[in-house]
Design a binder for these strands. Structure first.
Length: 821
RNA sequence: GCCCGGAUGGCGGAAUCGGUAGACGCGGAGGCCUCAAAAGCCUUUACUCGCAAGGGUGUGUGGGUUCGAGUCCCACUCCGGGCACCA
């Protein structure tokens, strides 16, 4: 496609100038109002893909828009540079992950710069940078000393194909590895955890105050999974001095307890199991502990809940009825939630019902289901029955009464449980930040002193796939001396989850030069919280939850006094790019590389496309027509270029033409400003296209202009275009205003209300609900004039045909509705 | 199964507060320019009846509220996403 200008030369010129002039470098003590715009820092996977382009186009638009609105905008960039893909690539090529990572960082940076996205590159933060690692390790140690980090033995997901542990989010719902497809195994390893569950309540409560997409908040609420109920004792039938402690959210159904269940890992299981049941129980436990949790909790192929269990031979007493009920062990009860044991009420719980069906256990209803209810368990509202002192009560009242009873008679205690688990941060990988701990036979677990930080991995580590941490195979790293007693000791050889790196980088951005601590809280407080965070929906839970936890914990351990407890005030999640319906990704090999468009439609053309193609939050389906749409976006820019560079003869002021132009200009200012504020980028571009149509197809179609009208129209158009197509806007502005400051330093246009209001609007006249006539009226028209104008309209007279209106509803200036019935 | 979204021309989408459905763009059709093409420009483009003037129908389906519904309410269908034995 032939362009009227040299896209490449023009865009390169401006990219160089922005970099040289440091236009978007901003100091912490800048007197203007501060605004922090941030795109989630990327994993360096090579040159940018369409998802990156989309992300940075949106972010850059905000940065330039808010800058023109007079704010000091912090726009930093960094890399989430640790991670498994680089390590795997390095193993394959017998190379070092750093080489891959740094080459790919350079590629991605170059893509981003060719897009014309502007950053304060002085503030670059990179996860594997030793200074950043030093403070990542300092934070770990500070958390540890504050009791927020601890060591415990836990089952982890281990992928035999990748020869490494996986994070929970890398395991698919069917229990296989998302990368290799292998079935994930369970291994018991001693691991480091962060006590994120201490913050469960705050993480839940603070969601209410965040300007985030509702669905992200819902996902986080579900993930945290608060449930309140009561914990109480079920005394053993053969020894009332001992009891099985259970947790329930439905104490009101207690009269319907017909059995109890313990998890396969429950500590009392051994005591409960009778000799004659030992073989059966043993078999179940063996099977349950060998399976991964994912596999264990998976549903059967027909979608039904799979229930496997075994009778222990023991009985406990229902505190409500005194009846002895059997105790089972079953894999549908999890050792890690609540007390690891439950009271089972098949009448009101579907899972208990399914189990009761399989094992022929009795079902007692304690809540009256609706007359037409034909199912098994009824979990809905109803009056209590078969429930002694609870009979006749609704669920809420019965819960209160039953709780009171359990408190008085069964060691009951109101309890809140969370689905959220502590965050396992240990990774048996090489390419991550080492955990700065030393194990000393004499002193125990010892933190590496700050003056010895950062703990860096040596370069000559073989990353063979043994399933063991690569660092453990390097004696020079592993064997050390105890910082406390000086005796021989062993280093921790696991590295930290890379989500720890992305949990505080936004704080380092605010103060990246401080040499002696992670960041100066006073400097960070100048920018925090992030005013606008932009990223993919795929981070809705993990990254955003971890970062929230870090922010709160950093305040509490004293590293960030005075900082807000929430890092991201406003969040925007962009849609995904699909190719003919399926997700575009490197692993599927269906990428459409953005690079090819830089030399044809240019960065500006590609940016306009991403802004225009649809609402930013929606997915984009890349189809056969997409190329044409991109061409259309470039055509729009070409038309602006031609208009701005066209030779036009001056003429006298012509109110009939020039006033219409002024109205269009000011209406567009109002529309674009409002649209950019509310993320309506597609309609903002459409509004500029409409303005351009007015100017080219009508106002200046005869090649003559009234200079002041033309100048205002063109300057406004370029200013409004500047955040969307920054190169072309800058170039044309410079042509029109040689020697003046760039369009990007101009104030954002302000709409004049006198002109942004149209002189005439179309009033619709309906008769019996159908549009029968239209009338152009003054927007300030009164009710009486509107009514009279409508009733006098020739089309209305014709349609009424002598009938007398029964009612006339006037909503000036939009509608007059005439009813004849 | 539960919880969120969503469904508008041939296509992407617009209609922001219950008041002109289809802005803007893509694609299509016709034309201008040209020796011809490309590029550009102009006209037209929801469906349907009609020579026209002018009608009728129309926002996933079926109901409802209203002078008036893409928008609100009820029931459902389909599509997308998240969670999925958390007691």
């Amino acid at each position: 496609m032939a362009r009227p200008f040299d896209v490449h030369a023009l865009e390169t010129k401006w990219q160089r100038r922005w970099a040289a002039e440091g236009t978007y470098e901003v100091d912490n003590d800048d007197p203007r109002e501060h605004y922090y715009a941030l795109c989630m820092y990327p994993y360096p996977s090579g040159s940018a893909h369409q998802g990156h382009i989309r992300n940075y186009t949106f972010g850059d638009l905000k940065v330039r828009f808010e800058t023109m609105r007079g704010k000091a905008v912090l726009s930093p960039f960094g890399f989430d540079s640790f991670g498994l893909p680089a390590e795997n690539a390095a193993i394959k090529a017998r190379s070092h992950p750093r080489l891959f990572t740094e080459a790919r960082m350079a590629e991605l940076r170059s893509s981003v710069e060719r897009l014309g996205a502007v950053y304060d590159w002085r503030r670059l933060v990179v996860s594997h940078d030793p200074t950043y690692m030093k403070y990542a390790q300092l934070i770990f140690l500070t958390f540890w000393r504050a009791g927020l980090a601890y060591r415990a033995t836990a089952p982890v997901n281990w992928c035999p194909g990748c020869a490494t542990v996986l994070a929970n989010e890398q395991v698919l719902a069917d229990g296989t590895c998302e990368r290799s497809g292998d079935l994930v195994e369970r291994r018991e390893l001693e691991q480091w955890f962060y006590r994120i569950t201490d913050y469960a309540e705050e993480l839940l409560a603070d969601l209410d105050g965040l300007a985030w997409p509702e669905r992200v908040k819902v996902m986080q609420r579900n993930w945290i999974g608060r449930s309140s109920g009561v914990e109480f004792d079920l005394p053993l039938a053969d020894d009332p001095s001992q009891a099985l402690r259970v947790f329930t959210t439905r104490p009101d159904t207690g009269f319907g307890i017909t059995y109890a269940v313990v998890a396969p890992e429950h500590p009392l299981l051994e005591r409960l199991t009778r000799e004659e049941q030992r073989a059966e129980v043993g078999a179940l436990v063996a099977r349950a502990t060998a399976a991964s949790e994912v596999e264990r909790t998976a549903t059967a192929e027909d979608g039904s809940l799979r229930k496997r269990g075994a009778f222990t031979g023991s009985f406990v007493r229902n505190p409500f009825t005194g009846a002895a009920v059997p105790v089972y062990v079953a894999d549908y009860v999890l050792g890690s939630y609540g007390t690891g044991a439950i009271m089972a009420v098949p009448g009101e719980d579907e899972r208990d019902y399914a189990f009761a069906q399989s094992y022929d256990l009795p079902v007692v209803r304690t809540v009256e289901p609706p007359a037409d209810f034909a199912g098994g368990a009824w979990a809905g509202e109803g009056s209590h029955i078969n429930s002694g002192f609870l009979d006749g009560l609704g669920i809420a009242d019965a819960k209160a009464e039953a709780t009171q009873f359990l408190v008085e008679h069964a060691g009951g205690r109101p309890t809140v449980n969370y689905r959220l688990r502590d965050w396992l941060i240990s990774r048996q990988r090489f390419w991550g930040c080492p955990i700065p701990i030393v194990y000393c036979p004499t002193c125990g677990i010892v933190g590496v002193p700050i003056e010895q930080l950062p703990v860096l991995a040596p370069d000559d580590v073989t990353m063979d796939q043994t399933g063991q941490s690569p660092l453990a195979t390097h004696p020079g790293f592993r064997d050390t001396t105890c910082p406390q007693c000086g005796g021989p000791a062993r280093r921790e050889t696991d590295t930290m989850d890379t989500f720890t790196d992305s949990s505080w980088y936004f704080l380092r951005f605010a103060d990246p030069f401080t040499p002696d601590r992670p960041f100066d809280p006073i400097q960070a407080a100048r920018w925090m919280p992030v005013d606008q965070y932009i990223g993919g929906i795929e981070h809705a839970i993990l990254h955003l939850l971890y970062a929230r936890f870090y922010t709160k914990a950093l305040v509490d351990v004293g590293l960030a006094p005075g900082l807000p407890r929430e890092p991201f005030a406003r969040l925007f999640t962009q849609g995904m790019i699909r190719l003919n319906g399926s997700k575009m990704s490197k692993s599927k090999g269906n990428l459409i590389a953005p690079e090819r468009y830089f030399d044809t439609v240019g960065a500006d053309g590609l940016r306009i496309f991403h802004l225009f193609v649809g609402p930013p939050a929606d997915d984009v389906d890349w189809t056969d027509q997409t190329e044409d749409v991109i061409e259309g976006c470039a055509r729009f820019l070409d038309r602006i270029y031609r208009l701005a560079t066209r030779e036009l003869a001056s003429r006298e002021h012509d109110p009939a033409r020039d006033d219409v132009v002024r109205h269009a200009v000011h209406r567009t200012i109002a529309k674009v400003t409002a649209d950019l504020e509310r993320w309506g980028f597609n309609t903002a571009v459409a509004a500029l296209m409409e303005l351009l149509n007015v100017l080219t197809r009508w106002a200046f179609a005869d090649d003559t202009v009234h200079r002041p009208t033309y100048d205002e129209a063109l300057d406004t158009l370029l200013a409004l275009l500047a955040p969307m197509a920054p190169h072309l806007a800058a170039e044309l502005w410079e042509t029109r205003h040689p020697g003046d400051p760039s369009v990007h330093l101009q104030p954002w246009p302000i709409a004049d209300p006198a002109w942004s209001r149209d002189p005439l609007v179309t009033m619709v006249i309906q008769i019996d609900g159908k549009v029968r006539a239209r009338l152009d009226v003054d927007p300030g028209i009164g009710e009486d004039d509107a009514r009279a104008g409508a009733l006098d309209h020739p089309d209305v007279v014709r349609w009424l045909d002598g009938r007398v209106p029964a009612r006339v509803i006037v909503r000036a200036p939009r509608t007059v509705s005439i009813v004849t019935r």
